[in-house]
C-alpha cells in the first residue's frame, strides 16, 4: 500500500505546472500575436503599437486606423505614453506587428540613410488649433534643411508667436516622422527637444551626412 507522501500542496503545485504551456513564453507570444490579428480583423484594434530600436534609443510608435498617431522617446516613459493614449483615444490598445510594419520599416530606412521622406499617413488628433497648424507646416521643411522658430512663425502667418511655435514643436506627437528636429534657434544653437538635446543633434548630424549616401539604384 502506498503511503500518503504526496500532499495537497504538491498536487496543487503539479497541477499548476501541468496546466502551463510546455513552452510558456513562446506559447503566450503566439497567443498574443493571434489575438492582435483577430482584434484587427474585427475592427477592435483602436491603437496598435510596437517598440522600434533606433540609434537614438527605443521609439514607441502607435497607429490608429487613421494613421500614425504617436512616436515617443524613451525619455517620455513608454508606459505613461501608452496609458495616456488609452485615456485620450481608446483603451483598446494592443501590441501589433502587422499594423505598425510600415512605420517600423520606414524608420529603419531613415536611420540607415536610405529614406529622406516618410510616406505615411499621420493622425494629428492629439493636437488642435495653433499647435496643429505649426505641426502641419513642419513636414514642408525638407531633409537636411533647418528653419528657425521665427521663420516657422512667419510661415504660418503669425510672426509674433515665436515662443508658441517653440512650445508647439516640443509637443509634437509624432517626432522624427514630422521633423520638429529641423527647427532651431535663430542664433544657430539647436534649441530644446522632447527626446533630449543629444537626440536632436544626432538627427541633424544624420541628415547632414547620411550613413549610406548612395541611394539604391532604380
Amino acid at each position: 500500500m502506498i503511503t500518503g507522501t504526496v500532499t495537497d500542496g504538491q498536487v496543487i503545485a503539479d497541477l499548476t505546472a501541468t496546466c502551463t504551456a510546455p513552452d510558456g513564453a513562446g506559447e503566450m507570444e503566439a497567443l498574443r500575436s493571434r489575438l492582435a490579428g483577430r482584434a484587427d480583423d474585427e475592427g477592435l484594434l483602436d491603437v496598435a503599437y510596437r517598440i522600434v530600436d533606433s540609434p537614438i534609443g527605443p521609439l514607441l510608435v502607435a497607429v490608429t486606423p487613421q494613421g500614425l498617431v504617436r512616436v515617443a522617446f524613451e525619455l517620455e516613459d513608454h508606459e505613461t505614453v501608452l496609458a495616456r493614449l488609452a485615456t485620450s483615444i481608446s483603451p483598446r490598445v494592443l501590441r501589433s506587428g502587422r499594423r505598425t510594419d510600415a512605420v517600423a520599416r520606414q524608420l529603419d530606412e531613415y536611420f540607415s540613410g536610405r529614406r529622406r521622406r516618410f510616406d505615411l499617413t499621420v493622425d494629428l488628433q492629439l493636437v488642435r488649433g495653433f499647435r496643429r497648424a505649426v505641426i502641419s507646416h513642419l513636414s514642408d521643411i525638407s531633409f537636411g534643411a533647418t528653419e528657425s522658430y521665427a521663420a516657422v512663425a512667419r510661415a504660418i502667418g503669425n510672426p509674433a508667436a515665436v515662443r508658441a511655435v517653440g512650445s508647439a514643436c516640443s509637443h509634437n506627437p509624432v517626432p522624427v516622422v514630422v521633423p520638429c528636429h529641423r527647427v532651431v534657434r535663430s542664433d544657430g544653437t539647436i534649441g530644446q527637444y522632447l527626446g533630449g538635446a543629444e537626440a536632436k543633434v544626432a538627427l541633424l548630424a544624420l541628415e547632414a551626412a547620411p550613413p549610406d549616401r548612395g541611394m539604391p539604384g532604380g
Partner: peptide, 23 residues
C-alpha cells in the same frame, strides 16, 4: 488613467491560459 488593454493580456493571459488548458 485607463489601463491599455495590452497590460491586461500580459498580466492575466497566463491565468486564463491555465484555466482553458485545465478544462
Amino acid at each position: 488613467m485607463v489601463r491599455p488593454f495590452e497590460e491586461l493580456v500580459v498580466e492575466h493571459g497566463p491565468v486564463v491560459w491555465r484555466v482553458c488548458r485545465a478544462l
